[in-house]
Measured scan of single mutants.
Amino acid sequence: MQIFVKTLTGKTITLEVEPSDTIENVKAKIQDKEGIPPDQQRLIFAGKQLEDGRTLSDYNIQKDSTLHLVLR
């Protein structure tokens, strides 16, 4: 499925993911596309910070959802 990741600069990254993918996995995909190390990434969805060990389906993230990427 496709999800979107919006950065603070207003750029939107499109990712191909599975509901069973972990947040860690998603961060690795963002690193592949953007070169941002996962340890600098914070992903936010519906006002919640997403934890590495959980999956997209744990957070009820569905296709065409938009996550927000904050760098630390």
Rank of each mutant, 00 (worst) to 15 (best):
Glu16Phe: 14
Gln40Arg: 15
Lys33Phe: 08
Thr7Ser: 10
Leu67Ala: 01
Lys29Ala: 15
Thr55Ile: 10
Leu69His: 01
Thr22Leu: 06
Phe4Glu: 09
Thr12Leu: 07
Ser20His: 09
Pro19Gly: 12
Leu15Met: 11
Ile61Ser: 01
Lys33Tyr: 04
Ile36Trp: 13
Leu71Tyr: 04
Glu51Gly: 08
Met1Leu: 11
Ser65Arg: 09
His68Trp: 02
Lys27Arg: 12
Asp52Pro: 09
Tyr59Met: 12
Thr12Asp: 04
Ser57Trp: 11
Thr14Glu: 14
Lys11Met: 10
Lys11Phe: 14
Lys33Ala: 11
Glu16His: 11
Pro19Asn: 08
Tyr59Ser: 13
Thr66Met: 10
Gln49Trp: 14
Ser57Glu: 15
Leu50Asn: 00
Thr12Pro: 06
Thr55His: 07
Lys48Tyr: 12
Ile30His: 00
Lys63Ile: 09
Ser65Lys: 02
Gly35Arg: 09
Leu56Lys: 00
Asp39Glu: 14
Ile23Leu: 15
Lys29Leu: 13
Leu56Thr: 03
Asp21Ser: 03
Gln41Arg: 02
Gln2Pro: 06
Tyr59His: 09
Leu15Gln: 01
Gln41Val: 03
Ile13Met: 04
Ala46Asn: 15
Gln40Thr: 15
Pro37Tyr: 03
Thr55Lys: 06
Asp64Asn: 12
Glu18Val: 07
Leu15Tyr: 04
Thr9Glu: 11
Gln31Val: 15
Gln49Ala: 12
Ile23Trp: 01
Gly53Val: 15
Gly10Asp: 08
Glu18Ala: 07
Arg72Asn: 04
Glu34Thr: 06
Thr14Asp: 06
Leu69Glu: 01
Val26Phe: 02
Ile3Val: 09
Asp64Ala: 04
Leu43Ala: 01
Thr7Asn: 08
Thr22Val: 08
Arg54Asp: 13
Leu67Trp: 02
Gly10Ala: 04
Ile13Gln: 09
Gln40Leu: 03
Gly53His: 10
Pro38Ile: 08
Gly35Met: 05
Gly53Thr: 10
Lys63Arg: 15
Thr55Gly: 04
Ile44Gln: 04
Gln49Arg: 08
Arg72Tyr: 05
Asp52Ile: 07
Tyr59Phe: 08
Thr9Pro: 05
Ile44Phe: 07
Leu43Pro: 01
Met1Glu: 12
Ala46Leu: 11
Pro38Leu: 15
Ile61Tyr: 01
Arg72Ser: 07
Ile23Phe: 15
Arg42Ser: 12
Leu50His: 00
Asp32Pro: 03
Asn25Gln: 12
Val70Glu: 03
Pro19Gln: 14
Arg54Pro: 09
Val5Asp: 00
Gln49Val: 05
Gln41Thr: 05
Ala28Asn: 11
Gly53Pro: 15
Arg54Thr: 10
Val17Arg: 00
Thr66Arg: 03
Thr22Asp: 15
Phe4Val: 10
Val5Met: 03
Leu67Gly: 01
Ile44Asn: 07
Asp21Asn: 04
Leu8Trp: 12
Gln41Ala: 13
Asp52Tyr: 14
Phe45His: 11
Val17Gln: 07
Asp52Thr: 08
Asp32His: 12
Tyr59Arg: 01
Asn60Ile: 07
Ser20Tyr: 15
Thr7Phe: 06
Ile13Phe: 14
Ile30Met: 11
Ala46Pro: 01
Asp52Val: 15
Gln62Met: 11
Val70Trp: 06
Ile44Glu: 03
Lys6Glu: 07
Phe45Asn: 12
Ile13Pro: 00
Leu56Ala: 14
Lys27Ala: 02
Pro38Tyr: 13
Ile30Gly: 01
Glu18Ile: 06
Met1Gly: 09
Ile30Phe: 02
Ser57Val: 06
Thr14Phe: 09
Glu24Tyr: 10
Ile3Ser: 00
Met1Pro: 02
Gln2Lys: 10
Gly35Ser: 13
Ala28Glu: 15
Lys48Thr: 12
Ile36Leu: 06
Ser65Asn: 06
Phe4Leu: 04
Glu18Asp: 12
Val17Thr: 04
Thr22Trp: 07
Ser65Thr: 07
Ile44Asp: 08
Lys63Phe: 04
Thr66Ala: 15
Leu43Trp: 01
Thr9Met: 12
Gln62Val: 13
Met1Ile: 07
Asn60Lys: 03
Asn25Leu: 09
Thr14Ile: 10
Ile13Thr: 03
Ile61Val: 04
Arg72His: 07
Leu43Gln: 00
Ile36Tyr: 06
Asp21Met: 04
Thr12Ile: 06
Ile23His: 02
Lys6Ala: 11
Thr12Phe: 05
Glu16Met: 10
Thr14Asn: 04
Glu24Phe: 07
Glu16Asp: 07
Lys27Phe: 12
Glu16Asn: 13
Asn25Ile: 08
Gly53Glu: 08
Pro19Trp: 03
Phe45Asp: 02
Gln40Asp: 06
Lys11Arg: 14
Glu24Leu: 03
Lys33His: 03
Thr55Asp: 15
Thr7Leu: 15
Gly10Gln: 15
Glu16Ala: 14
Lys6Asp: 08
Pro19Glu: 15
Lys48Trp: 10
Gln31Tyr: 10
Ala46Glu: 12
Asp32Gln: 11
Glu34Ala: 11
Ser57Pro: 06
Lys27Asn: 02
Asp32Tyr: 11
Pro19His: 08
Thr55Trp: 13
Val17Ile: 05
Asp32Arg: 03
Ile44Arg: 10
Gln49Asp: 09
Ser20Ala: 10
Ile13Asn: 02
Ala28Leu: 09
Ser20Leu: 14
Ala28Asp: 08
Thr14Gly: 05
Gln2Phe: 09
Leu43Glu: 00
Arg54Phe: 07
Phe45Glu: 02
Ile30Val: 08
Asp21Glu: 07
Gln31Glu: 14
Thr22Phe: 12
Leu71Val: 03
Asp32Glu: 06
Lys29Asp: 08
Ile13Leu: 08
Asn60Trp: 10
Thr7Glu: 04
Asp32Gly: 10
Ile13His: 03
Asn25Met: 12
His68Met: 02
Asn60Tyr: 14
Leu67Ile: 08
Thr55Ser: 10
Gly47Met: 07
Ser57Arg: 09
Val17Met: 10
Gln49Thr: 12
Ser20Gly: 03
Gly10Val: 09
Phe45Val: 12
Asp39Leu: 04
Ser65Met: 06
Gln31Asn: 11
Gly35Phe: 07
Leu50Glu: 00
Arg54Ile: 05
Asp52Lys: 13
Leu8Met: 15
Leu67Glu: 01
Thr66Val: 04
Lys6Tyr: 13
Phe4Asp: 10
Gln40Met: 11
Leu8Thr: 06
Glu51His: 06
Val26His: 00
Pro37Trp: 08
Phe45Gly: 03
Gln62Thr: 12
Thr22Gln: 10
Ser65Leu: 08
Lys29Met: 15
Ile44Leu: 04
Ile61Trp: 01
Ser65Gln: 14
Thr22Glu: 04
Leu43Phe: 15
Asp64Thr: 14
Thr66Phe: 11
Glu34His: 06
Arg42Asn: 11
Glu51Gln: 03
Gly47Asn: 04
Tyr59Asn: 14
Glu24Val: 11
Val26Pro: 00
Asp21Leu: 06
Val70Ser: 07
Ile61Met: 10
Gln49Asn: 06
Gly35Pro: 02
Val70Ile: 09
Thr55Tyr: 06
Met1His: 06
Thr14Ala: 04
Ser57Ala: 14
Val5Thr: 02
Arg54Val: 13
Thr55Glu: 03
Gln62Ser: 10
Gln2Met: 04
Gly10Met: 10
Leu43Tyr: 07
Lys6Trp: 11
Val26Glu: 00
Asp52Gln: 11
Gly53Arg: 04
Gln31Phe: 09
Lys33Gly: 10
Lys48Arg: 13
Asp39Asn: 10
Pro38Ala: 12
Glu16Gln: 12
